[in-house]
Computed example of a mutant assay.
Amino acid sequence: MRNYAQGAVLETVSVASSSDVVTARQMVRALAQRSRLSLVHQTKLVTAASELGRNMLIYGGGGVVRATAVSEAGRTGIFVEFADQGPGIPDVELALTDGWTSGNGMGLGLSGARRLVDEFDIESGPTGTTVCIVKWGR
């Protein structure tokens, strides 16, 4: 995935509680609305952001959500990064498998969040996990 965050002014929310996940979700929705993403695209993006933010809180102990509007080739979209300093995901491939669940969360899992967006990238190791997503509008 292209590094959309480089040089961009990012809106940031620190996530340490469930209410912070709500705040992050609201930030993502506001960006999507300002960028004139359709209601369907907004809903998909916010649903993915909610799942990823909740995962970051539950499994990574919290972290930071950064987001910005992006444009490329005449289209606009929203880039969102979820970064934690948790223990990492032991088996990323398994975690991305459709139907796999840890038994917690909304049930979408990483694979569900990935299906809701246009670009999805994950890096995970013993010092944390970073998930970056992009949802494009027109």
Rank of each mutant, 00 (worst) to 15 (best):
M1Y: 07
M1Q: 05
M1F: 10
R2L: 05
R2N: 07
A5E: 13
A5Q: 03
Q6K: 09
G7W: 06
G7M: 00
V9A: 07
L10I: 11
E11Y: 07
T12Y: 02
V13S: 05
V13E: 13
S14T: 15
V15L: 04
V15H: 05
A16E: 09
S18I: 08
S18H: 08
S18Y: 15
S19P: 01
S19W: 13
D20V: 03
V21H: 10
V22L: 07
T23I: 00
T23P: 01
R25Q: 14
Q26L: 05
Q26S: 14
M27Q: 06
V28Q: 02
V28I: 14
A32F: 14
A32N: 04
A32M: 03
S35C: 12
S35Y: 10
S38V: 08
V40H: 12
V40F: 15
H41M: 05
Q42G: 13
Q42D: 04
T43M: 05
K44H: 11
K44I: 02
L45S: 06
L45D: 04
V46S: 03
T47G: 13
T47P: 00
A49I: 07
S50T: 15
G53H: 04
R54T: 13
M56A: 13
M56G: 15
L57D: 08
L57F: 08
L57H: 04
I58N: 03
I58M: 12
G61F: 08
G61P: 10
G61Y: 10
V65F: 05
R66F: 04
R66N: 12
R66I: 03
A67N: 09
T68R: 00
A69Y: 09
A69S: 15
A69G: 14
V70M: 01
V70W: 10
A73S: 14
T76E: 06
T76M: 00
G77M: 02
G77K: 02
G77D: 04
F79H: 09
F79M: 00
V80P: 09
V80K: 01
V80A: 14
E81N: 07
E81F: 06
F82P: 04
F82N: 01
A83T: 13
A83G: 11
A83Q: 07
D84A: 09
D84R: 00
Q85D: 14
G86I: 01
G88N: 06
I89S: 10
I89C: 09
I89V: 15
P90C: 06
D91Q: 03
V92R: 00
E93G: 13
L94A: 15
A95W: 02
T97C: 06
T97S: 11
T97Y: 03
D98G: 09
D98C: 03
W100G: 12
W100K: 00
T101C: 06
S102L: 11
G105S: 13
M106Q: 10
G107K: 00
G107I: 08
G107L: 03
A113R: 01
R114Y: 10
R114W: 12
L116P: 11
V117E: 04
V117N: 01
V117I: 11
E119L: 11
I122K: 02
I122H: 05
I122C: 10
I122F: 14
P126V: 12
P126M: 03
G128D: 13
G128V: 08
T130Y: 10
T130M: 09
T130Q: 09
V131Q: 01
V131W: 06
V131A: 10
C132N: 09
K135R: 10
K135T: 14
K135S: 11
K135Y: 08
G137T: 12
R138A: 14
